[in-house]
Amino acid sequence: MQIEKHSLLKDFPEHHHTIRHLKMHDAHFTKLFDSYHELEHEVHNIETSNSPVEDDFIESLKKKRLHLKDELLSIIKTTEQKL
């Protein structure tokens, strides 16, 4: 079974230009973006390795990832409304 990565640029290609703009001009967005991708990398590594991990732990990481993704998308949409 192949585990899919959840890159923001892959998941939201229609917001590609806004994401680039925010990464260059918004330190808060960049910090959240980097945290999201670190967390995504950690989840992906856990899912692709056969290391034993508590279900609650991986689920908590996925919830954090989803929360960050929602927050990032909110910033993206708010920025697009202003432009």
Rank of each mutant, 00 (worst) to 15 (best):
M1T: 08
Q2G: 00
I3L: 13
I3R: 06
S7F: 15
L9E: 13
L9Q: 12
F12C: 02
F12D: 02
F12M: 03
F12E: 04
F12Q: 02
P13S: 10
P13M: 08
E14V: 00
H15K: 14
T18I: 04
I19F: 02
I19S: 03
R20G: 04
R20T: 11
H21Y: 15
L22C: 01
K23M: 10
M24C: 02
M24A: 12
M24D: 12
H25M: 08
D26L: 07
A27N: 11
H28G: 10
F29Q: 00
D34G: 01
S35I: 00
S35N: 11
Y36M: 05
E38C: 06
E38P: 00
L39C: 09
L39K: 03
E40F: 04
H41R: 12
E42V: 02
E42Y: 08
E42W: 08
H44E: 09
I46F: 06
T48G: 10
T48N: 13
S49C: 05
S51Y: 10
V53D: 08
E54P: 03
D55S: 14
D56G: 15
I58L: 01
I58F: 01
E59P: 05
L61Q: 13
K62N: 11
K63L: 07
K64W: 00
K64M: 08
L66P: 00
H67N: 12
S74H: 13
I76V: 06
K77M: 06
T79F: 02
Q81I: 06
Q81K: 03
